[in-house]
Amino acid sequence: MPLPAVLLSAKRMSAHQFVALTLANLRMIIRDRVLHGVLGVAGVMLVLVPAFSSFSMRQSQEVAISLSLSAISLVLMVLTLLLGTSSIWRDIERRYTASIMTLPVSRVIYLLGKFAAMALFLLICAVILTAAGSLVVLLAATQYPSDLPISWGTIALAVLADLVKYLLLGGIAILLSTVSTSFFLPFFGTLAIYLAGSASQEVFEYVSGQFGQEIPALSLAAIKGTYYLLPNFAAFNFKVHAVYALQVQPGSVVFACIYAATYTGLLLILAAWSFNRRAL
């Protein structure tokens, strides 16, 4: 019997392995009870949106959109944190790597498979949640007629930008989980970077203004250095545009996408290096 393994080119074989591992990891995610719970909570949050938005005096529709977008963003963040921070170290701890990594699979492919499965799952969740959120917004919009139209395109864009943002965050989580042996560093590290990266633009603008002249040059340089090092999540926030149907500049969307692609790429390469050096 001829061995198919020997006949396949290395590239095609890597592609096969990547697909197979992505699907297997997707199965792992979909069969995880914790994530079912998170999605259940997401459903409850969305169901409550019309109730909350009815408290608004003048902008029920806007409040419904902003609450839905925030709920989606929050759920995607929790999912990213759970998935990303429990990836590599946990596979090593559960000794999955001792079985999978001894197949003719390179560690890079393994890592990419994990990332792709996470990305795919987040995408599926984003699509489902956006569909549910849209229904909720439609329902809430009837409560008080708004002067503004509902800009579905911008809403979709806002969710998509969030998704891209969380893929970047997932890259950080995976990088940290390749160096860690437990839950703590990846989870709290990723959370801290998320919060810092969400705030960095505000802080940067603050210290760039008048306040910046009062602090020592060295601290200022440290703050600015950190600002450029940290992922800048403010670049992915199109929620105001979606809620108030404002015009989005195409340039800023393109910029955000390229920024996320380069940053995530760098993170994954670092993760691959770190994982390659690791003893399993």
């Binding site: 095609r12 392995q17 697909v19 197979a20 591992l21 297997a24």
Partner: peptide
């Protein structure tokens, strides 16, 4: 099936 795919079967 996963193992087989990883061996390129």
């Amino acid at each position: 099936s996963l193992v087989g795919r990883c061996f390129g079967m």
